[in-house]
């Protein structure tokens, strides 16, 4: 007898099982079902939209957008990536994956940015939030797929919920960090000229933190992309399903096809969001009005964008490669 477990085994698995099965699921299933509704609406809408518009139209719009936001290099890469997706015959799967990723990012932003702002404004809230974020990021995704299936069932929406849980923490953390890093003197200047707390937040702190918040959004996007593959395990479709069935049948070709598709989408989205978060090109770039102007024909700072395209260093670039 050399192990404690020979005498007594702590039934942690039983506890968790009864907690989830006997308490969480019967009491809260309706609430969890309600959460699904808005996600379902957004996802279904986006998916149907992306699958309905003709690929050529999508390509034209995407390339134009990429050119305006990021310059020539990124737009050429976008064009090449989209043509390749179509040529490989995985266009529809790619659009479904894109819809899933965009849905997840939208909900991450809607929930994550306000949480990050709250954390930046309250040390107590930050202290409480931090372990939750740690848990969200460290628990292996496979582990929480099971309770998610029990609470939400299988399918696309539960897959996206798993993706949101996995992808949201960096956005919260970086929003918090970005706002806390705004120089104290600038915040003081806001108050000294009679700004209210709300005005200081929206006129001073959030705009100055925007670059960091955009970096968080970029990370969230990348994590979402890697998670939608795993979400195929619980019935999500798209490129992830292609990989998943490829593995099941030992079909290397099909699995690789799905992988290549995800990498291409990841690189395009990564470059685009990084270019969006690059604030140094000119003042008008940082306002929404400026962005709109650039979309219709302002000055695309092509040389600068080429630089960032040629230099994929930095955590986001590395994350994209890993995918």
């Amino acid at each position: 007898m050399d192990r404690l477990s020979d005498i007594y085994v702590l039934p942690v698995d039983d506890w968790i099982e009864s907690f989830v099965k006997d308490w969480l699921v019967p009491n809260f299933r309706p609430a969890f079902q309600a959460i699904q509704w808005p996600i379902d609406q957004v996802l279904t809408g986006l998916d149907a939209f992306l699958l309905t518009i003709p690929p050529f139209l999508f390509m034209a719009v995407a390339v134009l957008l990429a050119w305006r936001i990021g310059g020539r290099g990124i737009s050429l890469f976008t064009l090449a990536a989209l043509v390749l997706l179509d040529l490989m015959g995985i266009w529809d799967d790619s659009m479904t994956t894109l819809a899933m990723v965009l849905t997840s990012v939208v909900f991450c932003a809607v929930v994550g940015v306000p949480l990050g702002i709250l954390a930046a404004r309250s040390d107590r809230f930050q202290t409480g939030l931090r372990p939750v974020l740690d848990i969200m990021q460290t628990i292996p995704a496979f582990v929480y797929l099971v309770p998610i299936v029990m609470l939400f069932g299988v399918g696309m929406v539960p897959g996206i919920i798993a993706t949101i849980i996995f992808a949201m923490p960096p956005l919260i953390r970086l929003t918090n960090l970005g706002i806390r890093q705004v120089p104290e003197e600038m915040v003081e200047a806001g108050y000294a000229f009679g700004a209210t707390r709300r005005q200081v937040l929206f006129e001073v702190q959030v705009p100055i933190a925007m670059k960091t918040i955009m970096a968080g959004l970029n990370q969230t996007l990348m994590l979402s992309l890697s998670m939608v593959v795993i979400a195929a395990l619980i019935g999500a479709e798209g490129l992830g399903l292609l990989v998943f069935t490829g593995i099941g049948r030992l079909d290397v070709g099909a699995a690789a096809l799905g992988g290549i598709g995800i990498v291409l989408i990841a690189i395009v989205l990564d470059r685009l969001t990084q270019a969006l978060g690059e604030p140094s090109l000119g003042e008008e770039k940082r306002s929404f009005r400026g962005l709109a102007m650039r979309l219709v024909g302002g000055s695309p700072a092509a040389d600068k964008a080429d630089e960032s395209a040629a230099d994929p260093a930095g955590p986001a670039g590395a994350a994209a490669k890993r995918n």
């Binding site: 003197e185 200047a189 000229f193 006129e203 705009p207 100055i208 604030p279 003042e283």
Partner: peptide, 27 residues
């Protein structure tokens, strides 16, 4: 703070996301 007292800071504390003019307009 709005009308009677204004402040000038050691490290200028200008807002980097606003133009010079918009900074001056802040108050």
């Amino acid at each position: 703070r709005l009308s009677k007292m204004a402040m000038v800071f050691q490290h200028f504390a200008l807002f980097p996301h606003r133009t010079v003019g918009e900074n001056v307009e802040f108050g």
